[in-house]
């Protein structure tokens, strides 16, 4: 488990991280979302041991990460802009990673290169941005570390490759002890893969929660309640996070289990009632509005 405990990071007069605390559980996919400049990359660089926080601590499996190879060997960091040494080829980078990550799976890497249709002997400087991204993801995955920190990894990948990478992550989670942490400015990119999500804003983490748990506890209902008095009653009985009425069609997002929410609505004798699927975006809007933030200005 990666434990981030009260971490603060300041660049001159810019507060990049403001007492951030979070836990990234082993075996899950942690999504880190936030606008540009929210502090996602800084947090990942702190977790990977690139930056030393001015306050707080980061531990990987209870080992402090700063200048500690024993902790850092469990983490591989794929930065936003991948760097390869001059004249490097995918095979050349493989040799270098093998040197640095003794558990590097060269066979799998070469197989993946073929699957991703990447020429192993071509100079990386001639690759497109997306292809470089693919190589860096493959290097990161094949390094066989327990944690893989991906900064805007899907940025620049085409939809097919995006899906391929997600599948790759999923298969890694199935096959070994693997915990990817994916930072992105877009919820939509990671909503179908993450099971834990943390929202960063202005250097502070607004919340970090289990996505399934959130989905189980929040529901979206569409209904038509003819009696305005009953509709008003419903407001008092449900913990409504979002409320929208167009004509007689009422759409609301309320906290509670599916049965609890449905039962309350049914009690108001609706002409029509159904539970709609919630997007991650809607969950976030609901949660952050409750926390007093206008989420629309934070993400998307």
């Amino acid at each position: 488990m990666i434990r981030i405990d009260n971490v603060s990071m300041r660049f001159d007069d810019i507060l990049a991280l403001d007492h951030v605390s979070a836990q990234m559980q082993t075996g899950s996919i942690f999504g880190l979302v936030g606008t540009n400049g929210a502090g996602k990359s800084t947090l990942l660089r702190v977790v990977s041991g690139v930056l030393k926080p001015q306050e707080g601590s980061v531990t990987v499996d209870d080992k402090p990460v700063w200048e500690n190879p024993a902790a850092k060997e469990r983490v591989c960091f794929i930065p936003d802009t991948a760097w390869f040494y001059p004249n490097a080829t995918p095979l050349g980078m493989m040799e270098y990673y093998r040197l640095l990550y003794p558990r590097f799976d060269a066979k799998r890497y070469q197989e993946m290169l073929v699957k991703f249709d990447l020429d192993p002997k071509r100079k990386l400087s001639t690759f497109s941005k997306g292809m470089k991204k693919q190589v860096s993801v493959l290097l990161g995955v094949c390094a066989n570390t327990e944690y893989l920190l991906c900064d805007e990894t899907f940025d620049g990948l085409d939809p097919v490759m995006r899906q391929a990478v997600k599948s790759l992550f999923a298969s890694e989670i199935l096959n070994r002890d693997f915990t990817p942490v994916i930072a992105s400015h877009s919820l939509r990119e990671i909503e179908d893969i993450c099971d834990h999500v943390g929202l960063l804003h202005k250097g502070g983490i607004l919340f970090a929660k289990d996505l399934d748990e959130m989905k189980l506890r929040i529901h979206k209902v569409q209904c038509v309640i003819p009696d305005p008095a009953l509709e008003k009653e419903l407001h008092g009985e449900l913990e409504i996070l979002q409320y929208d009425k167009r004509g007689s069609l009422l759409t609301l997002i309320a906290r509670g289990t599916r049965d609890q929410v449905l039962r309350k609505v049914q009690e108001k004798q609706p002409l029509f009632c159904e539970i709609l699927p919630l997007t991650l975006e809607e969950i976030f809007i609901s949660e952050t509005e409750v926390a007093g933030y206008d989420i629309k200005n934070l993400v998307f």
Binding site: V75, C76, P79, T81, W83, L100
Partner: peptide, 14 residues
Amino acid sequence: SPVKLDFYHSLPIK
């Protein structure tokens, strides 16, 4: 170079 430093300083070596 910040980009190169991200690479080198994330490596599992002191």
